[in-house]
Amino acid sequence: MTDTSLPAVGARPAANVRSRVPANPFAILRRALVYVLLSIAAFVSVFPFFWMIVGATNKSADIIRGKNSFGSELFNNAATFFTQVDALRVFWNSAFIAVVGTALTLLISSLAGYGFEMFRSKVRERIFALLLLFLSIPFAAMMVPLFVMFSQAKLVNTYTAVILPTVASIFIIFYFRQATKAFPSELRDAAKIDGLKEWQIFLFVYMPVMRSTYAAATIIIFMANWNNYLWPLIVLQTAENKTITLIVSALTSAYTPDYGMILFGTVLATLPTLVIFFLLQRRFVEGMLGAVK
């Protein structure tokens, strides 16, 4: 059984932690260099977040001038944002599309990953290989026909149009199939003997056992859906249906963008992905581990 309380990638029993402290000066120097480089990388990675939060409390003019201390404009920025943007509506659009899209993608892609791995046959192997080829076809190549299809179906400017094309993701199917290789086949045998039908095995055994895999996939899919830009930009046409990403993006292309207000909006737009990440972080690491095996 894997230890599901694995705290972090690279975690190892503490036993050898102290015994391996480098002793010679060269090793100490190298170690110091590693810390410096990682610190710079961490600073560069995190600073923009700090900048964003600070920016949300400052006036646009100060932000452009590079002020990086907290100001007192938070409520003004919020007020401006909420008068210019129907925030609730826009947030709802994003949330609906991301949540429903993620749930459907998880379900449909994991079903397929399970199906490809558990029921191998020559024909299905060929189909899978074909799908992997399609993985490298860029979205741009199908954008125009997709748009025409949805126009003809009179579905332009609907959530459905945004969600449907993303639901069956070859990348996620591939990910689930890889992870399923680590699913013990004896569990499935045991469940069959316990009288479960295949869909019950999937629902009551596979899904709970693979929850780390689902967690990692949730993060990846949710991020992709929440940040999806090009396709919603094409297919969502009226302001009341646009996602927060589209709306805030539109604000930045104003002639003189009000950065204080915009950064306040970006804090809102970033919160959900951050929350999901921190909620699922531990499982995410495990899930990735399983898939790379």
């Binding site: 599901t4 013990p184 004896e186 569990l187 045991a190 003997i193 056992v209």
Partner: peptide, 14 residues
């Protein structure tokens, strides 16, 4: 009317 005991035990981990 059978029951089976597996090599890896195959207990449901959750």
């Amino acid at each position: 009317g059978i029951a089976m005991v597996f090599q890896s035990y195959a207990l449901y981990p959750h």
